[in-house]
Amino acid sequence: MRIFLEQMLNGLTIGSFYALIALGYSMVYGVMKLINFAHGDLFALGSYLGFTLLVWGNAYVTSRIGLAGGMIAAMLIAAIGIGLAGIIVERIAYRPIYPAGRLPAVVSALGVSIFLENIIMVTWGPRYQAYPVSVVPTLRFEISGIHITLLQIVILILSFVLLAILYYIIQKTTFGAAIRASALDRDTAALMGINIETVIFFIFALGPALGGTAGVMVGMYYRQISFTMGWNYGLKAFTATILGGIGNIPGAMLGGLLLGIIEMLGSAYISTAYKDVFVFLILILVLIFRPRGLLGEKVAENV
């Protein structure tokens, strides 16, 4: 029971990373019908931006505004920076080729992914980089046999707050309704007076911004980052998106959390070596038996 609870907690933590990244995939797919394969690398770029800020001037930021301040500053900078990067990517790599159809855009997304990965390698070097210990809380405690770190709690709370805010924006505000309407039917939404341009701008800023924040969280949680990390997290988050129902915002959140838990419990009770197998087995099963995902309304297209 103790181990079960501990693994649930670990699963929720990595699940919340997946959920935050998955939202970017889902929002972009919902409105654009485009799988943004560059999203994972935007996430990695966010991780590196946070890293640069925190190690800059020998933890100058942390020493001035404290541990919590440094963490929040890093996440904010990563969110803003990656939000901007997302908009730039859309302008340069996607917008000019929309008229050519959806497949060229996917190829372009793959190109952006390779481009970003190499940009990171050239800028920060091919070696592993490490978030210094001094910029993250190291406190750990034991509650009736369950080991948990302060950082884990902070990450869980922060990501749930972010998920809740996004949920509120999408489901309860007028602008959220506009996004959902665009996802349902772009042309009709445009006829109803919804400014599609603004919606696209917004999702390409918000999705990557959340991904960038997750990048900083992953960096702080594992403290080790590499320029290739975007691909793996990208694939997992993409699986989470499919699991929850692509294009569906609450679905992406649910899919991410579920995937994290499945991954952890699977490796705890079956085999660690098959950790990634569980994830991609789920992708295959969902695609075969329930292609629209758990909460999805529409059938996911093969791309």
């Binding site: 501990e6 693994q7 992953v218 594992y222 952890m264 705890a268 660690t272 070596a273 950790k275």
Partner: peptide, 20 residues
């Protein structure tokens, strides 16, 4: 006596087993 996956970042599961 067991293996972890190189390139992996999360070893909490195998390490929990080690701890036990």
């Amino acid at each position: 006596y067991d293996a972890i996956t190189p390139g992996e970042k999360d070893f909490s599961v195998p390490l929990t087993k080690v701890r036990e």
